[in-house]
Amino acid sequence: MKNQEGQYFSPQQIPEALEILSKYGKEIKIIAGGSDLLVQYHDRLYEIAGWLDLKNLTELKKIELNSSEVSIGAMITHSQLEKSPQIKNYFPILSRAAAEIGSPQIRNRGTIGGNIVNASPAGDLLSPLIAYEAKLVLLSSDEKNIIPAEQFFTGPKKTILKPNQLLTQIILPLPPQNCYSSWVKVGKRKALAISTIALAMVVKMSEDNQIIQGAKVCLSSIAPTPLEIKEVREEMIGKTFSQVNFTKLAQLVEDKISPIDDIRGTKEYRKEVARRIMIHCLEEIYSCWRDKCLPIN
């Protein structure tokens, strides 16, 4: 395929893509799966001056595992994420979140990179990624930045990504052996639903599986960006499960969020349901922990 007028680029190599970005920057739109972009520009595609299509960048279509981390290429689709044995094994709620996105058609096209860069407050992968302490690799032709995912989002549909930068990889540190997670997405319908609220929780335990060493609770659709309730850490870390008051934690989550009323749910609903799903997630994690501690003979 030939591009005659500089309006459609589909480079084979990342450096080439970065070069195009540094040259055209704001003028062109980066397109991955297109499942958000083409919705946004429905009936007015003519407003777009040009495209940078990432579809030929095979470098971005890999999931790689080493001894300490997993690196996910930005062009990995939700379907691939859902089905990847590594993701299922190490990051089960990321796999589940991917499995519950939209529909088979959307999951086959939509990508993890697109989901992140689009920065929708309801982005399905965002809260699990933050809960798993993901880092993002941002490349431009002159520098490489690796930043924690939670620093990436600045508002609804707003990020720190510069026009000359490309999100290439998502890096997830491998969790310790005793790691438990839970995830709930609440929508008004079972499929093709945009979340009214979603909560991801990851709890890391000590080697002997007794002391909580890490606790991350992250919610989406309740604030302009995905939001970690950092106070949960203080309430949990260093304690055993029996020392943790679930009701109090759930109330804490409810109190710490100030969602808005919109077409998908009222503020009251979101606060109420946040508390209820927090308890649900804690109970789920607790019961997994208990099953592991006390194997039924």
Binding site: V39, R189, K190, A191, L192, I194, I263, R264
Partner: peptide, 16 residues
Amino acid sequence: TLNANLTDYLIPTAMD
């Protein structure tokens, strides 16, 4: 109309 689309005007899917 605040929900003139099938994203926010929901009709049942096969899952429902």
